[in-house]
Nucleic acid binder design. Sequence first.
RNA 1: GUCCCCUUCGUCUAGCGGUUAGGACACCGGGUUUUCAUCUCGGCAACAGGGGUUCGAUCCCCCUAGGGGACGCCA
Length: 453
Amino acid sequence: MEVTRFAPSPTGHLHLGGARTALFSYLFAKANKGKFLLRFEDTDRERSKKEFIDSIIDSLKWMKITPDEEPIYQSKKISNHKEIALKLYDQGFAYACDCSEEQLSEMRKDQISKKQKPMYNGLNRDKNIKFSEGMVLRFKFPLHNSSAFDDLILGKINVENKEFDDFIILRSDGTPTYNFSAAIDDIDMKITTVIRGDDHITNTLKQINVFKVLDKKIPNYAHLPMVLGESGKRLSKRDGAEDILEYRHKGYLNDALINYLVRLGWSYGEEEIFSLEKLEGIFDLSHVNSSPSKYSQDLLNWYNNKYLNFLTSDELIFKLREDFKVDFGELERGDLAISLLAKGANTLKEISEESKYFFQDPLMNLESAGIGKDKKEIFIDFKNQLSKIDFQQEEIETVIGSFLKLHNLKFPELGRPLRMILTGKQNAPSISELLFILGKDISLKRIEYSLND
RNA sequence: GUCCCCUUCGUCUAGCGGUUAGGACACCGGGUUUUCAUCUCGGCAACAGGGGUUCGAUCCCCCUAGGGGACGCCA
């Protein structure tokens, strides 16, 4: 059975890139009838925050990415990992090193100045220093040959071992480091396929050597090409490197975001729209693109607009009420109003902002509505005509038509000022729709207000 | 600097040796809407460059260029 995991470090919120990694990992597990697990790599005491654990959990929940078991906290396994590191030391797969941080940074500076790759030079590798607390343990990385693995997305990756140094597996404070703990935990959790960003490729090469000395089966790896910002640079605050929940606050739908994210790198012929349920059946790694992709606000907006319009007016009303405190349920014809606005809106927030005139009288006087004093009589007559009819859409259109004819007016001469009176805006739904949705009382009230000027 | 990964329209991508190189977003026109949006029809637009392999390369190999990533007692 396939077992995958998402292993964020709680040193920040979940952002777009992380969410995509989690999604792919989750979908791969589901599509293979396997398990998806969550592990917090919270061994960086300084930067790991409970706040971020909570926010990552909330974000995943909102994205409908549900782990099949309770989350694992790496910090709880520190002593276990230390024990294993010590065992490796006893077996000669690791060695003690007492180089000071100053020594190491000197070494690094020196190498950089010589245009060399900065890395530990193996000074203490063969000195058989006896380990005592306060020293670090370094992994004896093979000196010769190369390390390789078959990436499920990228294909064969092979790097000369001389490119690696003897990385630290146990810090001087006695805690294990990432590359060591991650490998051990993947073993413990029986992970079969590791799906993560391709910035982890070198880590993978290190970790498979840990697997080897431990004589454990190496999992499959799939490295996802990065998501870049719209500028082509690293994802920044401006384009998605912020809290994924920000998207919720801006009025994006989780289903739209899921759909957008999965299509960022993965494809299924020429289909564009996928429900999570469908993805759980058809997702695969072989159709993941091997090149990096750029974030596109336009495309996300397009998806969001689509999904907004997949919703029923009742569902829209519910979401607007919950997330934006705008209650279309209070309106006579709120269902029509909201679906009308949803047609052209990219986000729930836009709907709420656009909806003002349904809830508040715009209070336009003659001048701001663009009606000259000489035209006032005409509008008074129009108001009288309106007040006589039953406010059904057809009747409204009929009365407008005959009124226009009677006064020999072109539509805009009536429509433009009327739209201002009704909404306070130049751009809004069609006049007959507006009158119908607003209803007789409100429509007449707004017209009267202007005419009383 | 060293190593690794990547390269099809501006963007997301289809393609898996023979295609008029397809779709979507964006953009630009036409129609509908006597406003905007919607809707609809149409248009613009790509195989980074150079060598091979092959009867034939977008597709396979090499080089160059460009982009991204890694190089911590962070994860």
